[in-house]
């Protein structure tokens, strides 16, 4: 059982336990779909949807599930919501769905989601699980947003498809390629660690 205040339960996902920057979870979609802000945002929101609803359902039925079959049950629940998200995108946002390709179905194996069920929702009340899921989702969406902003501005000279860099600017094509994803994420992680170190040493 968590002993944090409600506020801390939410904010821990933003920084101290940020799924990408601090826990290094969910790196596959983080690297793969952040070439453009719109894709990063769609992936972040789809993952959030799955995480929030899975957390609610798991924390409701946590007492009913025998521990031997808990992982199997969690995966079925997660897969259900992933399929819903996948169908929704295919039906209403076909372009984004095409861009994200196999990465939407792959949300099923995103460690952030199963990790939160194991570590949190299966042990805490519905309310706390919801707050925790909201915090983790926000952390994930924000990180994806930052990463995809860097990559889209440098890699295409645009933001959300609008030209933001002048005509003098030649896009750094490497930034929308996988190599650019690794470089940008590496630098982000480095900065995050640096800030963490600074704040710790001050205390």
């Amino acid at each position: 059982m968590s002993t944090r205040s409600i506020g801390q339960e939410f904010t821990k996902g933003l920084w101290n336990e940020n799924p990408v920057l601090r826990q290094l979870l969910g790196l596959c979609p983080t690297l793969a779909v952040t070439g453009w802000v719109i894709n990063g945002l769609a992936m972040g929101l789809a993952t959030s949807f799955v995480l929030i609803f899975s957390s609610i359902v798991v924390s409701i039925i946590k007492k009913l599930i025998p521990s031997q079959v808990r992982i199997a049950s969690y995966i079925v629940i997660i897969a259900t919501f992933v399929t819903v998200a996948d169908r929704f995108l295919a039906a209403y946002f076909p372009d984004i769905s095409k861009d994200l390709g196999p990465y939407v179905p792959l949300i099923v194996v995103n460690c952030i989601i199963l990790g939160r069920q194991e570590a949190f929702s299966s042990k805490n009340s519905v309310g706390r699980s919801l707050i925790d899921a909201l915090g983790m989702s926000s952390g994930f969406v924000l990180t994806l947003l930052v990463l995809s902003s860097i990559r889209e501005i440098l890699g295409s000279g645009t933001y959300l498809g609008h030209q933001v860099m002048g005509s003098w600017f030649t896009p750094w094509i490497i930034m929308i390629l996988p190599a650019g994803a690794f470089l940008a994420l590496g630098i982000l992680l480095g900065i995050a660690l640096h800030i963490e170190k600074k704040t710790k040493s001050r205390i």
Partner: peptide, 10 residues
């Protein structure tokens, strides 16, 4: 219980 839970979840 395991069978029942998994089946109903499925």
């Amino acid at each position: 219980q395991m069978v029942v839970v998994l089946t109903s979840v499925g």
